[in-house]
Design a protein around this nucleic acid. Structure first.
Lengths: 147, 147
DNA sequence: GTAGTTGCAAAGTGTTTGCAGGCAG
DNA sequence: CTGCCTGCAAACACTTTGCAACTAC
């Protein structure tokens, strides 16, 4: 049985080392906040999380670190919104609901929805990934015209 | 048999009127360039297309008009790239390849790939749309490390 | 000790907005 | 004529970058 507890500092250091990332203080703080639970966060949300009590990490470092983590495969970029990139701590194949009102992502379990066939790719290209996004919104106004 | 010729000015005026869009000169120029063929363009590309010979439409008007067209259902926004929004002149259900190197979209025909089941939506939400994006890249460096 | 990292603020990019003048109906 | 549209430039939000100081090993 796997206890999904918050990883301690040593776990986080090991995680970063495994990905060839030098574990600096700021990266540990970021990783700790990020991997505490499975989530979808924007850079700015993460910046707020990390600096909740007092400023610990600068904005630039959050951006740089997220890019680094994404490059190393620790998080996955999710591009669904025109205004910001989300980073998904779950890197295995799965898809998303995207609520356009609250601007939040929700996982769709692979058992519930997955891609079982990808059509032949264009000549000379290789696949990087497949993503399905189900765009949803709050059912407030029941049947009004679409403005 | 449908001849898919470039629509003339009268066709375009009719098209806009059908969508409750007042057909101004600039909107006609934009619509003409946009609907001349089926394509995926960014606002900036469209701005260039429209002003190829001489400046005819301002940047703000291109952005405003694209937003208006999207709102009225004449084009569809495709969000796949962190840097720009693409507008797809094909509004019926279909999906895309996205080449991350050239930053270009290619249609996937619905007969080849489509969503035949959407899982139950979160409580109190309704579906806006579903999109599949197959991210691809040029197969240049055969098997190098991911840098 | 050395290379790599951080922080700051400034630059950069795509997009939106406010307002005066212009055009459609 | 009246209201909506256009253009310009400035504002905006998110992200990246340059450089000096600092930290990991």
């Amino acid at each position: 049985m796997i206890i999904d507890k918050t990883p301690d500092r040593a776990d986080t250091i090991k995680l970063l080392r495994q990905s060839d990332i030098i574990p600096t203080h700021q990266r540990l703080v970021i990783a700790h906040a990020l991997f505490a639970r499975q989530q979808h966060v924007s850079a700015e949300q993460l910046l707020d999380m990390v600096n909740q009590s007092h400023t610990e990490v600068s904005k630039a470092t959050v951006y740089n670190t997220l890019n680094l983590f994404a490059e190393k495969g620790l998080v996955r970029e999710v591009i669904v919104d025109r205004n910001r990139v989300f980073y998904d701590t779950r890197v295995s194949a799965h898809h998303h609901f995207f609520d356009v009102d609250s601007c939040t992502l929700t996982d769709i379990e692979p058992r519930v929805m997955h891609v079982d066939y990808v059509p032949p790719l264009p000549e000379g290209t290789i696949q990087e990934g497949v993503s399905i996004v189900v765009r949803i919104r709050r059912n407030h106004a029941p049947a009004s015209a679409a403005a």
